[in-house]
Design a protein around this nucleic acid. Sequence first.
DNA 1: CTGAAAGCGCTAACAG
DNA 2: CTGTTAGCGCTTTCAG
Lengths: 327, 327
Amino acid sequence: MSGVSVKTVSRALNGEPYVSQETAQRVWTAAAQLGFRLNVLARELRSGAASTTVGLLIGDLANPFWSGIARGVEREISRRGLRLITASTDEDPALEWSLTKDMLDRRVRALLVVPTTGDHSYLEADRRQGLTVVYLDRPPSHVLADVILLDNAGGARAAADHLLSYGHRRIAVIGDVPRLNTHRERLAGFRSAMERAGVTEWEQYLRTESHDAHAAEADTRSLMAMSTPPTALFTMNNWNTTGALRVLKDWPNDGSAPALIGFDDLDLGDVVNVSVIEHDPEEMGRLAAVTALARIDGDEGPPRSVVMPTHLVARGSGERPPRSSSS
Amino acid sequence: MSGVSVKTVSRALNGEPYVSQETAQRVWTAAAQLGFRLNVLARELRSGAASTTVGLLIGDLANPFWSGIARGVEREISRRGLRLITASTDEDPALEWSLTKDMLDRRVRALLVVPTTGDHSYLEADRRQGLTVVYLDRPPSHVLADVILLDNAGGARAAADHLLSYGHRRIAVIGDVPRLNTHRERLAGFRSAMERAGVTEWEQYLRTESHDAHAAEADTRSLMAMSTPPTALFTMNNWNTTGALRVLKDWPNDGSAPALIGFDDLDLGDVVNVSVIEHDPEEMGRLAAVTALARIDGDEGPPRSVVMPTHLVARGSGERPPRSSSS
DNA sequence: CTGAAAGCGCTAACAG
DNA sequence: CTGTTAGCGCTTTCAG
């Protein structure tokens, strides 16, 4: 390039010691003029070299829950100079599979996955070869691996107990597709609280398959149109809550409005006075990243399973009493 | 590996023609057993080979506006098998610069940037060498390049005109740091509408430097505590609007609540009846990706500048009349 | 249909 | 302090 060997260029540009100030300077200016940059791909191709990317597979980057996770991961790994490759699976197992394969072909240093349903044993071979995988939000199927979860059952139980304590019995549940583990866990938690209280009326008010706000809105309307409508609603994710709020927004102020508790907080949750089961997506992403980094650093301990707490935030909607309680 | 040459393996695994069914089959099973995968890094290192990653630099992945952009970009590039490397700049020009350099070292196929302020001519050398760069949301400084913008001035003007038409004169403006082009454009649009209407009272109600909801909340409180408070508010981004809504939420229902229009829509915007200047972040990301892909495909036309429309969505908060208008 | 050789750009190891 | 060599894993080119 300017009379020096490639190795000297490498040393200078990487700020390694054992290069004279003068030579380094010359290399720097020459590189700047020629627009020369070190090629990270080549660097990472070398034998024994580790890649500096981390793969993240989430459901949908545009959902605040998942973008929060992504932000937490990014924040943590960037402190180590690692970059984030993100992809949305749309909750499609086949897409998750092909994206996973793509990430591995790219030799990501670690793979963080919010798993959709499906068998995840297809990663076992790679894990044995040293691939770091951390699952988020939902446990993988047929696999023992590091995983960061929410206390889904506990949160749902807290929601149910809260509503029960205000005298509600006819409590409707609106949730996502039952295929998702989070959905099932939340439903199980809810169910256990209801059973403990000896309440059975709610079963007829269970609505699933609502994957977006629109569907949840329709569910809410049909529930409230029943001859004996529910006196309370438990919406099991952020978009389900959004749908319910759209219906309740214009509800007549005659005391007939159902109580509402939603899983996941909302950006304007405090403004609309919606009671929620709150948690911290960004911290969840951060923890997953920390776990992955520990594995990269050689942590060989048994698979870790972290369950993050949830908190009931009472803001009003969950504290409305039933209008005409039948028990 | 199993008696075949590397080239045959390459051919088989890439599904190239001119490999016998039988051989291909053998390679496939052997690869599966050994957990062998093609190395994309090596592939992309080859001379003339193009990388299959696209870099995206945004302010903060956790802000729905930017995660929407990211989603739009991802959706579009994934159709071509390209993956997204995302990084948050926190609106820090120095960080933007170092992240940019990092992306280039990784040989991203294209770089999409929401620029913070600063001189962006440092990318010119790389652009001349064929690097595809598309700017989003804000124009770069001192550079002529492809850029996808919002009609910031037009949107702000529409907000001002709307409030003016309802009789407001004392209109407060709450905005982000003036350093940001979007802020200045919106303010300029607002100002032009006010000037055309011959209104000057608003200048004393201008508040900037509110980069989050918390600061905007404080601004709103102090504004409303003035001896002659504003009768309307124009909040210039999503988080500023959120802050204002927190204050207005518990405002006495005596007709003294200020009108409110916010720039950017909010997830629960329809539930809280907030009037907004709405636009489509995901489409913006998609357009940027489309532009970048066209350049990659050889489009050599002059730099393209797309201005995306905004729409005023009247939901109630922007249609409140002033309590005791002074004009 | 299959294989051998070359080279992408980098850095570790080993000389000067 | 600086240079040489080798090899990471892939695919293009050219020969079988």
